[in-house]
């Protein structure tokens, strides 16, 4: 792990960081990955089935019915948006 790699990762994560922070993170990541990488010793290729397969957890789906009244939350939700125009959230132009 080095500074350039951390910068590349921060780009993928869409987070601006300084060169200095990237330098520090590179050292910390080495230590953290060295520790958590121990999981590789634990797994010896056993057939596990689907991870978590025996858990009782099943996704519950709501009926696709009885929607709430249209526009009920629109005002409150739009009030949280940094920029709006009419009943739309406004963003910068994406296509040239």
């Amino acid at each position: 792990m080095d500074r350039e790699k951390v910068i590349a990762l921060s780009k993928l994560a869409r987070v601006d960081i300084s060169q200095e922070e990237a330098e520090n993170l590179a050292g910390e990541f080495e230590a953290i990955l060295g520790y958590v990488g121990e999981v590789k010793q634990a797994y010896k290729g056993e057939d596990m089935g689907t991870p978590q397969s025996d858990m009782a957890l099943k996704n519950i789906l709501r009926e696709d019915a009885e929607p709430h009244e249209s526009g009920l939350y629109t005002k409150n939700l739009l009030a949280q948006a940094p920029e709006t125009e009419g009943e739309y959230i406004k963003v910068k132009k994406i296509l040239g």
């Binding site: 990955l33 958590v36 990488g37 999981v39 590789k40 634990a42 797994y43 056993e46 596990m48 089935g49 991870p51 978590q52 397969s53 858990m55």
Partner: peptide, 14 residues
């Protein structure tokens, strides 16, 4: 190497 292996070990522990 990391995430998938972690899920498998998670199952072993559980």
């Amino acid at each position: 190497e990391y995430y998938n292996t972690a899920l498998k070990v998670r199952k072993l522990i559980t």
